[in-house]
């Protein structure tokens, strides 16, 4: 990964697209329940927007958007959202991942909606994890260091055990 300054054309074309890419990622996430899409795809697209920034503005800038410690925490957090929603259903008296239990209403319409929201929450969890994992993969592999590409700093090595 080179990190000499990219051309201004690239930078000015790429930057404005980033919010749109991110919005699209959320759209894909929201569309996931009844069409192609969902957390996986949304997560990858979201990560791609940050990757684009890193490619055009340089590695440090990209990494600066979502710091290492933050993405490290996001990975388990996303999984936690997933299983937490499942466990919430248990608290509601239903089965694990039985979203209907998230409401006390007996109205089938409402229950169906609950199902919808439950799925959505879970997909959001997936998205968080996927985004942060993708970013970690990208940033760790492209860490710009002259010489031996395998060498890492001591502090990074220590942090690397949290994955």
């Amino acid at each position: 990964m080179s990190h000499h300054t990219p051309s201004p054309i690239l930078r000015y074309v790429a930057r404005p697209t980033v919010p749109f890419i991110q919005l699209y990622a959320l759209y894909v996430l929201g569309h996931g329940e009844d069409g192609p899409g969902g957390g996986f795809q949304g997560g990858v697209i979201f990560a791609a927007s940050i990757v684009l920034l890193a490619l055009t503005e340089g590695w440090p800038y990209g990494r600066g958007q979502l710091k290492r410690g933050f993405t490290d925490a996001l990975m388990p957090f996303g999984c936690l959202v997933y299983s937490g929603v499942g466990a919430l259903c248990l608290l509601g008296g239903g089965a694990f991942l039985g979203y209907e239990a998230l409401t006390t209403s007996l109205d089938p319409h409402v229950r169906n909606h609950m199902h919808h929201y439950g799925l959505m929450a879970i997909e959001a969890g997936v998205m968080i994890t996927v985004t942060s994992s993708m970013l970690t993969l990208f940033f760790e592999m492209s860490r710009p260091e002259p010489g031996d590409p395998w060498e890492l700093d001591e502090e990074d090595e220590a942090g690397g055990q949290h994955g």
Binding site: A73, P76, L80, S83, A95
Partner: peptide, 16 residues
């Protein structure tokens, strides 16, 4: 299910 979910969630909580 709890026998699996509880340790799984705990494992996710530990890094946090």
């Amino acid at each position: 299910v709890l026998v699996i979910v509880v340790p799984l969630m705990t494992a996710l909580l530990i890094p946090l």
